[in-house]
Simulated scan of single mutants.
Amino acid sequence: MSESDDSADEEYGTARLNHRGRLTIPKALRDDLNLEDGTEFRVVREGGDIRLVRELPDLETVTRGEEWGAEAFRDAGEATFGGR
């Protein structure tokens, strides 16, 4: 199943383009996808449709012997560390 087929039938309401060309993604969808301020998207035109594709940050490889920075585990969360 491709990424675009994941929740193709799920609706989150409507969005309206404002006079400045801004579009607000419904809060329920932002919450479901963990979208935060500053999340970047590629805008793709498919015929008469518009598709927003979330840009994921590049992964950084850390090798043995290098010191890990403070942000090495910033997204690990409670599942990894049990809420410590």
Rank of each mutant, 00 (worst) to 15 (best):
E55H: 02
A8E: 11
E11L: 05
T80N: 02
A72Q: 05
E55V: 15
L17R: 14
L35E: 07
R30S: 14
N34V: 13
G83P: 02
E36T: 13
G48M: 06
L17T: 12
V44F: 05
G13P: 04
F73V: 11
R42I: 01
D58T: 10
Y12H: 15
V62G: 06
A15R: 01
R64T: 08
N18H: 11
R42C: 02
T39E: 10
R45I: 10
D37P: 08
D31H: 05
S7G: 14
S4T: 05
D58W: 00
E46L: 15
M1Y: 04
I50V: 15
G65Y: 09
L17K: 11
A70Y: 02
E10N: 06
L33W: 03
T61M: 07
P57S: 10
D49N: 13
V44R: 12
E66T: 11
R51W: 04
L33R: 04
G21D: 09
G38M: 14
F73P: 05
L59Q: 12
E10L: 02
D9R: 12
V53I: 13
R20K: 13
K27A: 15
R42Q: 03
L59G: 14
F41M: 09
E67M: 09
D75E: 15
G83D: 06
E71Y: 04
T63D: 07
R84A: 12
T61K: 08
T14P: 00
E46Q: 14
S7R: 15
E60C: 04
R45G: 07
A79Y: 05
D9I: 07
L59Y: 11
R20T: 09
R84P: 01
V62M: 09
R54M: 10
G82S: 07
P26Y: 05
F81L: 09
W68Q: 00
T39R: 01
D6P: 00
D9N: 15
R84Y: 08
E60Q: 12
F81C: 05
E55C: 13
A15Y: 00
D49V: 03
D58H: 05
R51A: 09
D6R: 02
A70R: 04
Y12D: 08
G38I: 15
D32C: 00
A76P: 06
D75N: 14
S2K: 14
D58R: 04
E36M: 07
D9W: 03
R74P: 00
L29N: 02
I25V: 15
E40C: 08
G65N: 10
A76S: 15
S2D: 15
N18R: 12
G65K: 10
D6V: 01
A28F: 00
E71P: 01
Y12I: 07
F81V: 06
T63R: 11
G65A: 10
R22S: 14
A72D: 04
R30P: 00
S7P: 05
E11Q: 06
D49T: 06
R54V: 13
S4W: 03
A70Q: 10
V44P: 02
V44I: 15
K27E: 14
L33V: 02
A28G: 11
D5L: 14
R22G: 12
L29D: 00
R45N: 09
G38V: 15
L23E: 10
L23W: 08
L23I: 15
D49H: 12
I25P: 00
N34C: 07
A28C: 08
L59A: 14
F73R: 12
M1R: 08
R51H: 03
M1D: 10
A28M: 13
